[in-house]
């Protein structure tokens, strides 16, 4: 065959082009579709609930994936910042995947359970009120919209989540009861951001928060809770910076960037407990405060040791002591 004639035969040329583009396509895309190892499935990672499914669709509708990734890479600093690296099994129920491509905001793959719901309600309503340097858009309209659940049963069916319409209805009713109950831990903030007419309903914001709280939770549940790093520091139960004025000032800066959004201005309390108190929930000794900040506590206090390091945790504790002295 004379290859030069290829350039005189458009249809043959088009067929040749199809063959040439098919090779890489077959090897890197098509064949992996049929290898179970590409997308392994594990019972440890569960499908989304009905409300989480709706929340995920709101995440997609608002284009959150344009600024937030959902994949933690196996790099030391990344694991320290966000949490354990992403596993393929975690994405088994994700249609579409939402790994993203740009971090204008932080990764969210390990966001579930990091903060209480109240944090999200307030943050979504006005991010700049919590972090003045943030450039995240405010999403006030989400709390003003009742969640449309007319398609929910159809959605979980298409997505193959393995439960039926009756179960969807049960989940929706249960969720509604939970978030509208006066005993809901974030009830106060929720009612602040939700208009009175919708406080008894599930709003779009409720669903979105439920979805955000799901991210990474299955992995955390599957792993043994990490040994509280603070125990390693038991020998150092005394703050090396106690009474050090300069360290207290540095501690103030650390506090403003990391603690203020939950514990309020000068530790006066917010979603997180009041810090200027004689009745600390998890103990008030230097060692107790260090353990709380470094290793986190159940109910929404994240561990800060990986991000801050020992020195800065102690400086933050020194600042809390400074606030206590001031209040006396």
């Amino acid at each position: 065959m004379n290859f030069n004639s290829l350039y005189e035969k458009p249809v043959l040329f088009a067929l040749a082009a199809v063959v040439v583009i098919s090779v890489g396509t077959l090897v890197t895309t098509f064949i992996p579709l049929f290898l179970p190892s590409t997308q392994p499935v594990s019972p440890l990672f569960t499908p989304y609930t009905a409300v989480e499914t709706e929340g995920r669709d709101i995440y997609i509708r608002e284009g959150c994936n344009n600024c937030h990734t959902q994949t933690v890479r196996p790099m030391r600093t990344e694991v320290a910042r966000y949490g354990d690296y992403s596993r393929p099994e975690e994405s088994a129920w994700d249609r579409p995947f939402l790994w993203g491509s740009r971090r204008t905001g932080p990764d969210l793959a390990r966001g579930g359970g990091k903060y209480p719901d109240a944090w999200h309600y307030r943050h979504m309503a006005n991010p700049q009120a919590m972090f003045d340097k943030s450039n995240m858009p405010a999403y006030p309209w989400l709390a003003n919209a009742k969640l449309d659940t007319s398609l929910t049963a159809g959605k979980v069916k298409v997505l193959g989540y393995g439960y039926d319409g009756a179960e969807v209805a049960r989940q929706l009713a249960g969720f509604r009861q939970t978030v509208t109950a006066p005993t809901y831990p974030s009830a106060q903030v929720r009612s602040q951001v939700t208009p009175a007419s919708l406080r008894g309903e599930i709003t779009e914001l409720d669903a979105l928060v439920a979805y955000l709280q799901k991210l990474g939770r299955d992995l955390k549940a599957a792993q043994k809770p990490p040994a509280v790093p603070a125990t390693a520091e038991a020998a150092e139960s005394k703050n090396p910076y106690a009474g050090n004025r300069q360290a207290e000032e540095e501690g103030e800066k650390i506090f403003k960037e990391n603690c203020r959004s939950c514990h309020g201005e000068k530790g006066a309390g917010g979603f997180g407990p009041k810090l200027v108190t004689t009745a600390h929930k998890f103990g008030g000794s230097d060692a107790d405060l260090f353990a709380s900040v470094a290793g986190g506590r159940p109910g929404g206090m994240p561990p800060f040791l990986p991000q801050l390091g020992k020195e800065r945790v102690w400086k933050a504790v020194a600042y809390i002591r400074h606030l206590e002295r001031e209040s006396r």
Partner: peptide, 15 residues
């Protein structure tokens, strides 16, 4: 909803 799930969806999407 995408015909592909998770890792496959990502791989097809960036292809």
């Amino acid at each position: 909803y995408s015909a592909y799930a998770g890792v496959n969806d990502a791989n097809v999407q960036w292809w």
